[in-house]
């Protein structure tokens, strides 16, 4: 049983890391897609930076030792899903717009 101060420390650390972890895929997606839409390489790279930061945050969460093995695996699967999401969705968006003869072709 951990004492109350240590418990408070765990809650504070995990909550802040979770908040950042949840925010990063959004930044990653937004900057990656904006980079594609506006043809700006630096925006795309910034997006990748947020994606990499997300991986870093997960590693940090695991390193705290607060997560049990099951939750470590859950977080790794989630990270994989969120990292793959923006490029996969971009490819899908392009494909369905092309197939449907849309005049709008941002990239």
């Amino acid at each position: 049983m951990i004492d109350t101060a240590a418990r408070a420390e765990m809650v504070r650390t995990l909550m802040l890391l979770e908040f950042v972890f949840a925010m990063l895929p959004g930044f990653y997606g937004v900057f990656y897609i904006l980079g594609q839409v506006l043809h700006r390489r630096w925006l795309r790279l910034l997006g990748y930076g947020f994606g990499a930061a997300q991986v870093g945050v997960v590693l940090l969460m695991i390193r705290t030792g607060y997560l049990e093995p099951f939750w470590v695996r859950v977080m790794l699967v989630l990270t994989l899903a969120y990292v793959a999401m923006p490029p996969a969705l971009w490819a899908l968006a392009k494909a369905i717009h092309r197939e449907n003869t849309d005049t709008l072709q941002p990239s």
Partner: peptide
């Protein structure tokens, strides 16, 4: 996240 991508693709493209 998918909705953000969708909105950005269409609205951003215009």
């Amino acid at each position: 996240v998918a909705m953000v991508v969708h909105a950005l693709y269409d609205a951003g493209g215009h």
